[in-house]
Design a protein around this nucleic acid. Sequence first.
RNA 1: CGGGGCGUGGCUCAGUUUGGUAGAGCACCUGCCUUGGGAGCAGGGGGUCGCAAGUUCGAAUCUUGCCGCUCCGACCA
Length: 569
Amino acid sequence: MRVSKLYAPTLREVPAEAEVISHQMMLRAGFMRKAAGGIYSYLPLAWRVLKKIENIVRDEMDKAGAQELLMPIMQPAEMWQESGRWDVYGDEMFRLTDRHNRNFCLGPTHEEMVTTLIRSDVRSYRQLPLNVYQIQNKFRDERRPRFGLMRGREFIMKDAYSFDRDEQGLEANYQLMYNAYTSIFTRCGLKFRPVEADSGAIGGSGSHEFMVIAESGEAEIVFCNECDYAANVEKAELFPIECAEEALQEVRNVETPECKTIVAVCEYLHLPVEKSVKAVAFTSEKGLILCFVRGDHEVNEVKVINACGVIELEMATDEELAAAGTVGGFMGPIGIDPTKVMVVVDQSVMKMHNFCCGANKTDVHCLNVNPGRDFKPTIVADIRLIQITDACPHCGGKISKARGIEVGQVFKLFTKYSTALKATFLDENGKEKPMVMGCYGVGVSRTMAAAIEQNNDADGIIWPVAIAPYQVVVVPVNLKDEASTAKAEEIYATLQQQGVEVVIDDRNERPGVKFKDADLIGYPLRIVVGPKTLAEGMIEAKIRKTGEVLHLSATGDYVATVQEILAKL
RNA sequence: CGGGGCGUGGCUCAGUUUGGUAGAGCACCUGCCUUGGGAGCAGGGGGUCGCAAGUUCGAAUCUUGCCGCUCCGACCA
């Protein structure tokens, strides 16, 4: 490719709309342009990167025994109604109607589609296991699209679905996919970490997320420094906290004027925060939920959702609190009827003695409260967020936190969809059984963005060779100098013949412009051909990642050298 | 959806407070010149100032409504 013909309009300045590095770089380097919020055109350079990622994904999927197919983006409402998700999915689903007023959606995911497809064709245990995948655009009307490709409303995803006779089969497929994902992200040149994850709205249980480690990541993960435990914070279990036994004392109320937060209350009463319990109130489709955790702990909403078996949580309003007989800032479990309001108490609170909490009256808190004696929870569960001071839930070791970009997730769905959608088969005994399913996603366009987040400097992108749009750019320094320009053309043609993915910057621009663009676009290797070095029989190869400059013989076998350099990057 | 900020040529922004008929830099076109890290000179093209109503002799500027973008909170690949 000749840069003079390449559709890659670079920008000198950072567009005001872009906040994160990957978004800024992709706009500046001419990789993409916005059509609407969270919706982008991929220009040729980006499309080459995406195809490279897709091909790595394909290769690993095929090796793991999955078969590629392509399902419709537009999906009829009926199958979603059958699974029950037409109503559950909410505003995040793009919906449309045809001329006959029939309802459709743009696929946010394909469990319904694939399950109804497979159920009509697979009748026997002999046809299982089966694993199918596709790479296509997905549509989700995000509440808040942001960060360019990191959270778009239309994005490219690889989604695979496995069907097995039993849970052992699922376990095997899950492991195959887990390993394939590890290979995919390794081959893409990314620093990543698989972590235990909550399975969320997709359903099922048992899940891992593949996180690309990056400061700009939206997810927070914890990992143990001593064992191999790693989890999304919203999933992370807690190492049990024990409390020393002490004699139970009588409950009494104290005035706590103007103390709206638990920290203020404890300061006012000269109590350690560990001797207090705070409350967070939510509303859900099952009504009000009062959650209680220790004063210095935080409520984990995902755990609350799972513990209560609800779909969504919202912060409760003052009116709802008043109706339940309490008041914001002074909520406590005493006197709340656990059969009318869900009183969800963190497991660690159940072990505390003589603690302080709200008295459900403005400016009043209770002292010496004890679980069991003074109140009855509706539910006791682990509902708190792990903190850096917590011990590893597996080995008790010291944990660390990091931020990550979720580029892939694997789920064990079990029979959630096959039961709802009646995807059954006959086993060897002629008995009808639901297929045991798994699903496995890779955010292809997000992976491209994540790669940039992890590989850039002040001058631009630094592509890992495996997913770079081109491997090499050849830069003739001065087009007026015939000898060096001819040499550059020769090198370009030769490399191309040898299968190197190469562009030549044949624009009649000053060298600075070409260098700046090459750095910005992030070609892994730049070959500069100019009169000065050529006079000495040399050409220059500069490695984008390290800045290292190598002088190669212009007449010798530079092709082999270039291939060696690329192989090492 | 709630809360902040912003919409002026392709990009970055000034002008809005105090209404008087639109500007700069970059990019683009032509010519000259220049060629190892975003050169210089000269000339040139391009904007119904997000949209719609309103106030006014007169609106980018004031008022109202709408739309879009963006950032902060809950979801996800």
